[in-house]
Amino acid sequence: MAFSCLAKIEMNQSLSPEFVGFFDNARRGVLSFPRCGACARFHWYPMPRCPHCRSADVRWQAVSGRGELFSFTSVKHAFDPKRADSLPYTVGLVTFVDAPSVQFVTNIADVPAEALTIGMPVEAVFDQVEDGRVMFRPVPLKSGGIA
């Protein structure tokens, strides 16, 4: 499907040092966010110091990878010409109970945008993460459909 084309698109490799831990963990199948060792609060995107208390003791905290879909859009225009063959694709914004104040931009895999609703449970997918990207998909129900 269109989605798999995205995996071939090159990542920007000039990563800021404070970003690297995210991708190292993601390649091991772990979703993690920066959390302050002093005040225990999360922040996102990664900053050199905790933006809540200015501590430099920022650590990567693994989270469950289960979240809720805060919003989403089906992108139908090739803002980047390299993506012209992968339209439409779905960008979602995901929130987490175990990482408050983090809102994660991702692609929603497996289902078309028409099947998505705000607030639906989603989970991280680690089967296409050679470049460190983390996709999400709706949480499958035991009965077959999606939640």
Binding site: S16, V75, F79
Partner: peptide, 29 residues
Amino acid sequence: YAGKMAFEKPYGFNAQPSYFALWARRYMH
């Protein structure tokens, strides 16, 4: 923006219409 380049552009989220589309969808809700 370094964070956008690392954590948004790889998902095809690199254009202002997509940013505001997320806002509009949630605001509608």
